[in-house]
Amino acid sequence: MPTPIAVVFDLDGTLTDTEVTWEEVRRGIAVSEGHEYPARATTDMMGMSTPEWARYCRESLGYPGTDAEIARRVIAGVADAYHAGRVRLLPGAADAVRRMAARGPIAVASSSPPELIDAGLDALGVGDLVTVRVSSESVGAGKPSPEVYLEACRRLGVRPQDAVAIEDSTNGLLSALAAGMLTVAVPLEPHVPRPEVLVRADAVVASLDELTAEFLIALGAR
């Protein structure tokens, strides 16, 4: 394969460690309403679009209110964490975005709503480098549907097969694979991709420090 032209990053769990923040916020709401938060809930909701996980919270976790009200409540909690500096920025994330932006077009394709994509990129200090930002809210389906990645490639003006996705989760990898993209997995404990999905990634790296122009050349040569 030729060297990938474009790089499309996931956000949650790939650039910022918000998976723990989402879990804390959602668990806190469930407990405050007198409900348990099952261990599977976090993994179940990974990659879901906002309408999808809001419905899950109502139907499976017993949240009161409409889906729109539930979404606003959870998103506000995560936004507060960003603004208070309580979201961990993953090691090497900002530098990786800068390196990739220096070599070609980049984008973010995330299941987060637009306001949280903006908050995450601003926290990393790379908001000015990422002009293409696609939320699954805008395409009507969350990961593992390929739509969010297909839309990111469309806006970048590249074919999916000429782009590489940087992902951390099972649903994210499935989304990028279904879009026909090269995939690089950056597993983040404790919610690592399922083994049968991780083995399908074109490469698995221990950290974003490995994401360099030379790495992408080698990836395309495999």
Rank of each mutant, 00 (worst) to 15 (best):
E36W: 00
Y37C: 12
P38F: 01
A41V: 09
T43W: 12
T43F: 12
D44R: 13
G47M: 12
M48N: 05
S49H: 02
S49Y: 01
T50L: 09
T50W: 03
P51G: 10
E52R: 03
R55Y: 00
Y56V: 01
C57F: 07
C57H: 12
R58T: 10
E59N: 13
E59L: 12
S60P: 00
S60Y: 10
L61N: 01
L61S: 04
P64T: 06
G65T: 06
G65K: 09
T66L: 10
D67Q: 13
A68R: 15
A68Q: 15
E69M: 09
R72Q: 14
V74G: 04
I75P: 00
V78H: 09
D80G: 10
A81S: 15
Y82P: 02
H83D: 15
G85K: 12
G85Y: 11
V87F: 13
V87Y: 11
R88D: 15
L89T: 06
P91C: 13
G92V: 08
A94T: 13
D95T: 14
V97W: 02
V97F: 05
V97C: 07
R99L: 13
R99G: 11
M100T: 08
R103W: 10
R103C: 06
G104C: 10
G104W: 01
P105W: 03
P105H: 02
I106A: 00
I106H: 05
V108N: 05
V108D: 04
A109L: 01
A109S: 04
S110Q: 03
S110F: 06
S110C: 09
S111H: 05
S111T: 13
S112P: 02
P113F: 08
P113N: 11
P113H: 09
P113M: 11
P113R: 08
P114H: 14
P114S: 14
E115T: 14
L116V: 13
L116S: 07
L116C: 12
L121P: 05
L121A: 05
A123D: 07
L124P: 00
V126C: 02
G127T: 07
G127F: 03
V130F: 04
T131F: 00
T131W: 03
V132E: 01
V132L: 05
R133E: 03
R133V: 03
R133N: 02
V134R: 01
E137R: 13
G140R: 10
G142L: 07
K143R: 15
P144I: 04
S145K: 08
P146A: 09
P146H: 09
E147I: 01
E147T: 06
V148G: 00
Y149G: 04
L150H: 01
L150W: 04
E151W: 07
A152E: 05
A152T: 08
C153D: 03
C153S: 04
R155P: 00
R155T: 05
L156D: 01
L156N: 00
G157E: 07
V158D: 05
R159A: 15
R159C: 06
D162G: 08
A165I: 08
E167A: 07
D168K: 08
S169I: 01
T170S: 14
N171K: 07
G172Q: 02
G172T: 04
L174E: 15
L174M: 15
A176S: 11
A176R: 03
L177E: 10
A178F: 05
A178E: 07
A179F: 02
M181S: 09
L182F: 14
L182A: 14
L182R: 14
